[in-house]
Write a protein that binds this DNA or RNA. Structure first.
Length: 399
DNA sequence: TCTGGGGTCCTAGGACCC
DNA sequence: TCTGGGGTCCTAGGACCC
């Protein structure tokens, strides 16, 4: 197996991303504690973090901690644009970029030394380019493995750079708290701490079977490998999304099934639009519920054929929602969501523009006539209507 | 003013097929 | 009539991440 001997993986992670975009766009927010999101904290500037405010914290608690904090509503499209600008810088740095989320990515810079300098020099330049071209602070960790690079950026935050030389890996890793391990959240952390295990080094002294007995098979083997700094994963480009979803918090006020249905229609419309825009189709529809007592449930149904059709997915989501109505009535609904999974590319589908300008004008018979006229009467085995702003298209899926 | 919105991966049981 | 084991798919739930 190829073993990397040089630290050539970069983990680049924007600092307090949403809050930094707000501070960039509004000079009055600079140097001040800024909270993005009112109900819960979506992001907090470092000035706000100094008061103990954290992401996902309730808005009320955040304001208690820092009454002077400036609360701004999220501007998702601004963050999406900022992300694109930053990823452009990543792509200009190396062709090997693996995005992890809207604000972080792995970059493999092996083989670039002659043209671009050492990994450390590349990382420095990357930070400067992101600052100049996107106006945002970013932290970079550099190491031999993905995991260690991510740990390094976490330690170096904010606005920092940290290279972990191959010879110093365990000395760097083992004193760190177990929560630094990727995959150790509140539940696993509590289990480990309950057994007196507080550092990565202590995890490394446990055998794999013992760890498996504590946290389960996959997680146990994963933690064992990471604690020994074994992480053979490569930087992968071109990963595809495996699900597309949307959800909406309903508040504590009791909603009628008709109200919830209206929310459901909006969610299905949003999600299927995104599917079609990305040219993906999916087979499994999942409806998520959260109840008054914060318990959760999901219901799913798998269709015989993948689709991105609003009406098909809506009918399935409604069926799942109605089947769950007794539970919803009993426990009270505070959130509803839908997701489409089992995704595949909409390849092989032929698109035909149909003469409809508005949804209300769709006539199935007219559509079928148009399809038959274009492809012949037995060319069509199956079709779904896909909405577009400029018209309507029908993909013909080969049987 | 208790708790948003977007995801990933794993586990486990049952159905079904060979 | 009684019998085994393996593999895949579907559903539901859980943990985790940003």
């Amino acid at each position: 197996m190829f073993v990397r001997r040089e630290a050539t993986i970069l983990h680049a992670d924007l600092d307090a991303f949403y809050a930094s975009v707000e501070q960039r766009d509004d000079p009055r927010l600079r140097g001040k504690p800024v909270i993005v999101g009112a109900g819960v904290v979506l992001a907090a500037s470092y000035e706000a973090k100094a008061y103990g405010i954290r992401t996902a914290m309730g808005g009320a608690q955040a304001r208690r901690l820092c009454p002077n904090a400036i609360v701004v509503p999220p501007r998702m499209s601004a963050y999406s644009d900022a992300s694109k600008a930053v990823f452009d810088v990543f792509e200009d740095t190396t062709p090997s970029v693996e995005g992890l989320s809207i604000d972080e990515a792995f970059l493999d810079v092996s083989g670039l030394r002659r043209v671009a300098g050492s990994p450390e020099a590349i990382a420095e330049r990357l930070r400067r380019d992101v600052r100049e071209r996107a106006g945002l602070p970013i932290t970079v960790g550099v190491a031999r493995t993905k995991f260690l690079a991510k740990v390094a950026s976490g330690v170096a935050k904010p606005d920092g750079l940290l290279v972990v030389p191959p010879d110093d890996e365990l000395a760097f890793l083992h004193p760190l708290a177990v929560e630094r391990l990727w995959g150790v959240g509140p539940i696993t952390s509590a289990k480990l701490r309950g057994l007196g295990i507080r550092t990565v080094g202590q995890v490394a002294r446990l055998s794999a079977p013992i760890l498996v007995s504590i946290v389960g098979r996959a997680a146990g083997l994963h933690l064992h490998a990471l604690a020994h700094n074994r992480d053979p994963r490569r930087v992968e480009t071109g990963k595809r999304r495996r699900s597309v979803g949307g959800q909406s918090a309903l508040g504590r006020r009791r909603r009628s099934p008709e109200d919830v249905d209206a929310v459901l229609v909006g969610l299905v419309d949003r999600v299927t639009r995104r599917l079609r825009k990305g040219k993906r189709i999916g087979r499994t529809v999942v409806v998520r519920f959260r109840f008054d007592d914060f318990t959760r449930a999901t219901r799913s149904h798998t269709l015989p054929d993948p689709t991105a059709a609003t009406l098909t997915i809506l009918a399935t989501a409604r069926m799942l929602f109605h089947a769950t109505l007794p539970v919803v009535r009993e426990k009270g609904l505070t959130l509803i969501g839908i997701a489409v999974t089992n995704l595949q590319d909409e390849d092989g589908a032929t698109q035909l523009l149909l003469p409809f300008e508005r949804r209300s004008e769709i006539d199935v018979d007219v559509a079928l006539d148009a399809i038959k006229g274009r492809f012949g009467s037995d060319a069509v085995t199956r079709g779904v209507l896909l909405g577009r702003k400029t018209g309507w298209t029908v993909p013909l899926l080969p049987e």
